[in-house]
Every structure is written in C-alpha cells, then in structure tokens.
C-alpha cells in the first residue's frame, strides 16, 4: 500500500474505535452527563475520519465539515446542559432511569435488582504536619477591621 493509503487506513481505524467506545458508553452508562460526554466522543471519532479523508483527497471539505461539527457540538452542549439542569431540579438526581415512563407502551419497566453499596467508603484526606514555630496571635489585630 502507498503511504497515504496507510495513513488514511490507520486514521479510519482510530475513528471507528472512538465511535464504538462512545456508543458503548452512551448505551450503558446511566448518568446523564456521562452519556453526553460519550456522545461527544462519538463526534470526535467522526471528526478524526473526516480530517483524514480531507487530507487524502487534498480537499478542504473535511476540515470545514469538522468546523461545523464543532459549532453543532457547542449548540448541543448548551441545550443538553440546560435540559439536564431542569431534569435535575425535578428528580433530584442525574439518573436516566428516573425518566423511564417515556419508554414504549409494551416495554416492561426497569427495576434495579440490587443497589450495590458504596465499597469505597469514607474518604481520608491527607493532612500536613505543622512545621516551624507557631506565630503569636495578636487578638486585637484579628478583631480590628479597619475598612469596615
């Protein structure tokens, strides 16, 4: 294969993998924000393929198309985030299953069989060892606020 075909081949494979990963995430994850991140990953996969085709055909169309994809992604993100905020105000969480009343009529509802407990437990944060001499605190200075 000539080298430009090899370059196109490899870029198309990368684009296909990105699209597939985004698709799996969009179908599987339940957090609405992560679902929209996955949609953006799918858009990135398409953009990679378009730029590769543009280079291959020596044509500006691929790159121009990606500029439009960027603009549409910005629109999508704005509207999606506004909707997510509204849905969060109504349901109190970001779970997409909360809105399963919108499913088709003959579909059975999704019920969580068991909710796994949080195995990570309470977080422990790092602490700093105090070093040096503790400066003396002037009580009057801390109470006095000159500008108020």
């Amino acid at each position: 294969m000539p080298s430009d075909v090899v370059l196109l081949h490899n870029y198309l494979i990368v684009g296909a993998l990105l699209f597939g990963i985004g698709l799996v995430g969009f179908l599987a994850r339940r957090n609405m924000i992560v679902m929209f991140l996955c949609a953006e990953i799918m858009l990135q996969g398409v953009a990679v393929s378009l730029v590769a085709w543009g280079r291959f055909h020596n044509n500006w169309g691929g790159q121009i198309m990606v500029i439009f994809i960027l603009a549409v992604a910005a629109c999508e993100a704005g509207i999606a985030l506004a909707m997510i905020l509204m849905l969060y105000h109504r349901s109190g969480n970001l779970d997409i299953v909360f809105w399963q009343n919108l499913r088709e009529e003959n579909q059975p509802p999704h019920v969580d069989r068991e909710i796994p407990e949080d195995v990570e437990g309470p977080r422990t944060w790092p602490t700093l060892t105090p070093a040096g001499v503790e400066p003396e605190l002037d009580v009057e200075k801390t109470l006095h606020r000159s500008k108020v």
Binding site: G20, I21, V24, L27, A28, R29, R30, N31, D95
Partner: peptide, 23 residues
C-alpha cells in the same frame, strides 16, 4: 457522596456487544 447510578449500567453486556458488532 457517590451516586448509586454511577455504580450500575444498563445491560452492559448487550451494549458492549452492540459496539463490538459495529466496530
């Protein structure tokens, strides 16, 4: 804290299978 819906997936196996067919 950690939300329960971040620790669960819809039909993880079916989604991965769909992605595998496409890719």
């Amino acid at each position: 804290g950690h939300a329960y819906y971040d620790r669960l997936s819809w039909e993880a196996l079916l989604s991965a299978g769909t992605g595998a067919v496409l890719v």
